[in-house]
Amino acid sequence: MQSTPSLADRLALVRSAVADAVREAGRAESEVTTIVVTKFHPASLVRELAALGVTDVGENRQQEASEKAAELADLDLAWHFIGQLQSKKTRAVLAFASAIHSLDRPSLVTALGNALEPGASVDAFIQLNLTDDPARGGVRPVDLEPLAESVLATDGIRMRGLMAVAPLDSDPRAQFARVRKLGERVQRMAPDATDLSMGMSGDYRAAILEGATHLRIGTAITGNRPVAG
């Protein structure tokens, strides 16, 4: 029976595949940050990842993320909040997150600005909804510029660019090309907002080929989520 790949093996495999895709795209490896998504996994796994050289970790639930960040405060990690964010939880997320990837409505932008301490700042990505389902997180492309204007008018929020998830029933590369073009619209308003947070375990190669700067990779590295007892 073939043994299950270890965490180190899975991480090495993804790192190699990312490097291959970056070369295929004619880009530099320094242009792409791999965020390891550790939701539902214990803090001990994050500590193992840190020992393997991982510096960027993604979480999508505030309470779970806050607890892990507190337990792992001795590590030099950059925590990325990638889940849907309730306005009332912005202050709690700001306590640990260096970047928020899910700005999707003006009220959240206002709440985030109000929660920031004077002189403090946070990196932020506007999340796009690439589906026809309004219940999904993200702003519709037609509403992108007004939301970007709201972000740019709020002190302390550094707009990095766009975040998106490719719909399951679509060609991911075509969707990521769409995000790249929408990003060019934002850059006309904010020339420094050049980043694209897109690409997950099953489609990160396509994302890299379309200009992704931040990948959010979970199970390909961490393995399946633990089964609740």
Rank of each mutant, 00 (worst) to 15 (best):
G202F: 08
Q62I: 13
S102D: 10
A220H: 12
K89V: 01
L215T: 02
I157S: 01
A220I: 06
A25W: 13
G156T: 12
E145Y: 00
L182I: 05
G156C: 13
G183A: 02
G211C: 01
A95P: 10
L45R: 13
A78F: 10
D171Q: 13
L94P: 05
A92F: 01
I157W: 00
K39N: 07
A115F: 02
S150A: 06
A21T: 07
R10E: 05
A69N: 06
A193K: 00
E117N: 04
G83V: 03
E59R: 10
S107A: 15
S107H: 05
R61S: 15
H101D: 13
L108Q: 12
D74I: 03
Q2V: 15
P141R: 10
Q175W: 01
A8P: 10
R160C: 05
R205A: 12
T33H: 02
R105F: 05
H101E: 13
P141H: 13
S30C: 04
L45Y: 04
L182A: 00
W79Y: 03
R188W: 11
S197H: 07
I217H: 11
D123L: 09
V32A: 12
S6L: 09
L147T: 08
S201K: 12
P226F: 11
L182K: 14
L147R: 08
H101M: 12
T213P: 09
S98V: 07
D195C: 14
A50D: 13
L72R: 15
K89M: 07
V36H: 03
S98F: 09
A174E: 04
V57W: 14
R225Q: 06
A51N: 10
S3C: 14
R205L: 02
I35D: 07
P118C: 06
E59S: 04
T154M: 06
F81N: 07
V186K: 04
L108W: 05
V46K: 08
L209D: 15
R216W: 02
F125V: 01
L196G: 01
E59C: 03
P42E: 14
F96H: 13
G119K: 15
P141D: 05
A212I: 05
V32S: 15
S16D: 08
M159R: 00
E59A: 09
A135G: 15
D132K: 14
M163L: 11
D133P: 07
G58K: 09
A166H: 09
D76E: 03
R27E: 08
L45Q: 14
P146I: 03
K181H: 14
S102E: 12
I221S: 10
R23F: 09
W79H: 04
M1I: 05
L215K: 08
L168A: 12
V186S: 07
R178I: 00
F176N: 01
D203H: 11
V122F: 03
R91M: 12
E149F: 04
P226S: 14
L128V: 00
I208Q: 15
E31W: 03
G137Q: 07
E71A: 15
L94C: 05
W79N: 10
R216Q: 13
V57S: 14
A95Y: 02
S16Y: 02
A95L: 08
E59I: 01
I208F: 09
E67D: 10
L162Q: 07
R15Q: 08
Q175P: 06
R140L: 08
N224M: 07
R47F: 09
H80K: 02
R91P: 02
R173K: 10
L7I: 09
L130K: 05
V93L: 09
I35K: 01
A164I: 00
S16T: 01
